[in-house]
Amino acid sequence: MMFGTMPQLTPDLIYGVAGIAVFAIGLVGALCTQDRLRRVLALKLCSVGAGFLLVVAAWRGPPAAPDPVPHALVITGIVVMVSATAVALALIRRLQTLETEDDT
């Protein structure tokens, strides 16, 4: 569209743009939300957006099989992200406990 010619509408194009949008939404959320839990959600959105990009980059028009390396990378990314999320959530829980104890 942007370059004058209408690109062929294929899944990689559709989901690629969607992934970039999700990443950007997550980015804005991570920068602008106040709520601690919601910031974790926003970061998680960013990671899914990045995952979209890699999976899209691996896609080859059927019947060609996709490139397996980015798939492995995204799986790694997902596991890394759940670890980070767990630590962040543990911090949130601990902080809330400490803050409540101090208030009372």
Partner: peptide, 26 residues
Amino acid sequence: VRAGLEYMYASILGALLFLMGVGFVY
């Protein structure tokens, strides 16, 4: 703990920006 949480957010966000960059490189 509060500082650690802020650090965590910054760290994850930094790493995710890097990951997105990796995606574009690929």
